[in-house]
Design a protein around this nucleic acid. Structure first.
Lengths: 132, 132
DNA sequence: TTATCTGCAAACATTTTGCAGCGAG
DNA sequence: CTCGCTGCAAAATGTTTGCAGATAA
């Protein structure tokens, strides 16, 4: 059903060696830059199918742009993302899950999903800046 | 510096009597439908300035579309949104704030912001559906 | 072989912007 | 009166889609 093409493996391999969240367009540029000939539409289509298969995590940037990342853990988790360098740490969120459940119950909601992501400045980037 | 025009107050008044998160285009349609003549660009510009002034909350839908809502509380809070009818409850998130601080510290991040929103089915909508 | 994938370009949807005229202060 | 605001239409993004040809299985 899913064919393994040159393009598809190029995208997957790039994601495997990329640590931060990147847009479809950035990934397309990265691939072109590293010699892979691939169309932008193919990148979009590939990312879409990877996202559907839960093989990549999708985040929405401030401007609504979709950002993709291949995460190490398969189970539910959240992200701590550096606003400056994009470095991303996968984190557990047990307190968030408990909070979500409690709030849902208190308000008579069922089947409640949640999003929770953290954005800040990593130690490395903080070190490079003026101390303010 | 900010002029109070007919269009601007129309948008604000509409937001005041709207309970759920709505897109710029929906708000524009609502205004047109209720007889207000206003351009779509003006709605976008007004929402943008309201958002900058923290007078409205902005959320990103699944497709990246920006959704706006005038919230009762001025202080930091989160939302529990019904996926079916859009009904929205403003909720406190003390456990989330604590979690964010802790995770940030453990990973050497500073200046950490967070997003945390809940999406589910409200009691009213759950009642209307088959029990499964 | 053949159904799926690819690349391109055109279509789309949302949001932004340039500019001439309007109108709040 | 003046400068910011408005409306329109055009442009800029980001993403999706139609189709003819390429290709994995």
């Amino acid at each position: 059903m899913l064919r393994m093409t040159r393009q598809r493996s190029a995208v997957q391999e790039l994601l495997d060696r990329t640590d931060d969240f990147r847009s479809a367009q950035q990934l397309h540029e990265d691939l072109r830059a590293s010699g892979s000939s691939i169309g932008l539409a193919t990148v979009y289509r590939t990312l879409q199918s990877l996202a559907e298969a839960d093989a990549v995590d999708v985040l929405r940037g401030d401007d609504g742009e979709a950002l993709y990342r291949r995460c190490a853990r398969e189970s539910h988790h959240h992200h701590l993302v550096c606003k400056h360098c994009g470095r991303t740490v996968e984190v557990e969120g047990a307190p968030v899950e408990r909070w979500a459940d409690k709030v849902a119950e208190e308000n008579g909601f069922v089947d409640v999903d949640h999003t929770a992501e953290l954005f800040g400045t990593c130690g490395r980037c903080a070190g490079h800046q003026r101390t303010g």
